[in-house]
Design a protein around this nucleic acid. Structure first.
Lengths: 197, 197
DNA sequence: TTGATTTCTTGCCATTTGCTAAGTGCGAAC
DNA sequence: GTTCGCACTTAGCAAATGGCAAGAAATCAA
């Protein structure tokens, strides 16, 4: 397992030399995570941010009635962490769980703080990463505001088809803000519409 | 107009001495904004971040069908800006408009970058601010995933009653992800339920 | 393999929300 | 004061989604 994809990720986030990008990437350590194991549990402080090299991860919380609600999926070339807990050093409300076996590059909060102080580019990288997460969330917020469940499903399947290979549909349903029953119906309709084409 | 509320805001975001907080606040300049005027228009890069001293601001975009969708309300003691445009120096998709006459303390991107380089506490303040915005958005995302429109309305009215004094209901409706028709019905039901108590 | 468990689908009906259109009320402009 | 425009409400019907329960399919463990 080499760091190419992480280095390339850094370079996509901001303009930076290969050398500098490799310097940033050097601060990350490899980890293998078993299917179903947890990167984070509710009540704990999130100490690590994981760049996913391979595998699928999801985060979820329990709502007031005790139902699981999937808050995010993390796949290849994304960072999995509870940003709020990680940066505010506060207990997490979420669980973060590996859905498949995963390989990640991770950094601890302490190492990141050290790098923030010593490497200006790291600060910029960190800030842009948070901003990008914010952007993703905002995009999703908009889709909740204006789109139907079927449209959200359609977008998800075209942007993240790989999720459907490994993630149980009931998790995808709560991510889309609907019940597994509704998702099942939507899939049926969707398949009908997209068969002929 | 003095900077007390801004100084106090800084101190709520992070533990910091009065003196340091005042140093940070010193970087902000006052501005008066007229009702209905724009802090930002779609296509422009967001150059300023405004701490709202007084007044109400909303941000909105046009969806694919050309309908306005309210993306956020900003009231006293919050920062109004298009984070994505501001930090990525990219054209904004949103409009940000004053709903009432406003008074703000603002900082430009350039001044902020300078302060980031020279004042470590400013970096921390900036980062925590973004993280907090992320947290607010995440909270709202969760409410979209799990709550009914009436529950979202109920929460908004208890957390931000001041919005209802000045903001047309049709803007609040799109913020809640419903039509003004539905909001009207919900308000009727809500009033009925909460009359006796 | 077999049985048990979980996931997914389906049907029925209730509820929520949207769409369209009409009507009401209020304030601004003349 | 009258008229116009805008915001808001209301009504009737259609579409989307949820709740519940039963059954089918897939998965897991022994």
């Amino acid at each position: 397992m080499n760091k190419d994809s992480l280095v390339q990720f850094v370079q996509r986030v901001m303009p930076i030399s290969q050398l500098k990008a490799e310097q940033l990437a050097a601060k990350f350590m490899p980890m293998k995570i078993e299917r179903n194991s947890y990167l984070l549990k509710e009540g704990k402080v999130c100490h690590e941010s994981h760049f996913i090299e391979k595998g699928i991860v999801r985060s979820y919380i329990y709502d007031i009635e005790g139902n699981e609600v999937t808050t995010a999926f993390y796949t290849k070339n994304t960072f999995a962490a509870d940003l709020l807990s990680f940066f505010k050093r506060a207990p997490a409300r979420e669980y973060i769980q590996a859905i498949t076996d995963c390989e990640t590059w991770f950094i601890t909060y302490e190492d990141m703080q050290t790098s923030f102080h010593t490497i200006p580019e790291f600060r910029e990288f960190g800030r842009l990463n948070i901003v990008n997460q914010y952007g993703i969330l905002k995009e999703r917020m908009l889709s909740m505001l204006q789109e139907t469940a079927e449209q959200r499903y359609s977008h998800l399947i075209s942007s993240s088809a790989e999720i459907f290979q490994d993630v149980p549909l009931k998790y995808i349903a709560t991510y889309l803000g609907i019940t597994d029953t509704s998702l099942s119906r939507i899939r049926k309709e969707f398949a009908k519409k997209n068969t002929g084409s």
